[in-house]
Simulated scan of single mutants.
Amino acid sequence: MEQEQLQVKTPEYVSLQFKLAGLGSRTAAYLIDYAILVVSQIILTFILFFSLSFDAGAFYFDQNTLFITLYLIAIFVLNLGYFALLEFFWRGKTIGKKLLGIRVIQENGHNVTFLSSLIRNFIRLLDVYVIGMVLIFAHPKHKRLGDLAAGTLVIHEQGKNSSKKNAVEQYIEKCGLHKEDLTLESFDIQQFHQRDWQLLNTYVHRIITIQQKEKPILTEQVSEILLPKIDTRINQYSLSNESILLLLYLHLKDEWEY
């Protein structure tokens, strides 16, 4: 099936285009994740087996009951938490989705929230996978029941050519800056929205072309808008505002550039 284009208008009135992930890539990603879960469950089963006591007696019976209860809880948490937690903290990706180059997003183009990820993956446990496949194939936006309930989409990430740097990346490299020079957590990244990315993206492309005397004015204007969102992070760095904005660009680029 050919990749279908979908245009989404964000709450910030920005139009984004995505390539919807179809049945083939989603199934392949799920099989990879499922294989990881199976191996994890086998390991847990071995741990349970060697933890059980086969001696007679009420004490051993109660102990075995406790181990089996913990085992069942661990299996449930693993099956739900693997998908829900990875998708939330890894920007809509699991290991399988990462390998296949797809990710989950909200219908408005924003990153998937923890509640949405929890809903779509809880329903995965209740859904018969054959029904899910039929829905993905038949639905115009390739949604299964979990996506319908959570308001999510699965899209292809735009491939990036790491061997060729664009003008902004060349400028950042020339400044001697590296993404690792600014440490940001997932919570910090989530403080910025599509409108912030548009502003920052415009700034960094403008800063490499304008005259030197104009840079401080533009940098100050953009800094006043964006940097207060991570002021607790950047206080520990002895970097100029321009450097911090350029490093912030490298972080948000992975988040917002599709």
Rank of each mutant, 00 (worst) to 15 (best):
S240E: 09
G109V: 03
Y258K: 09
K229I: 04
G159M: 14
K164Q: 13
R144F: 05
L148R: 02
A56L: 14
I225M: 12
G176C: 15
I189P: 00
G176V: 11
I36D: 04
G22R: 07
S40Y: 05
F122Q: 01
E257D: 13
Q198E: 11
L72H: 02
E169F: 07
Y71A: 03
V134M: 14
R124G: 01
H139D: 12
L218W: 02
L6M: 15
Q198R: 09
F114N: 09
Y60P: 00
K19V: 10
F137D: 12
L100P: 00
V38N: 08
H139K: 05
L177D: 04
V204N: 05
M1W: 08
S116Y: 01
K98Q: 13
L70I: 15
F83H: 02
I207N: 09
E257L: 05
L200M: 10
S51R: 04
K215S: 14
I95F: 09
I155Y: 00
E214S: 14
T10G: 08
Y71H: 04
S15I: 10
A74G: 03
G96W: 00
L135I: 05
Q3F: 08
V112P: 00
S40W: 02
E173H: 14
D188L: 10
G81R: 01
I47W: 11
E2V: 15
E220G: 02
K141W: 07
D188I: 10
S51M: 11
Y237Q: 11
S163N: 15
Q7H: 10
I95L: 13
L20P: 12
K9R: 12
K179S: 08
S116Q: 10
L115G: 09
M1S: 15
F88R: 00
Q236M: 11
R26P: 08
S223I: 03
D196P: 03
L125D: 07
S40H: 05
G146S: 07
V154H: 01
T10K: 03
L66W: 12
C175K: 11
Y249S: 05
I73K: 00
F88H: 02
L153G: 01
Y71M: 08
K160A: 12
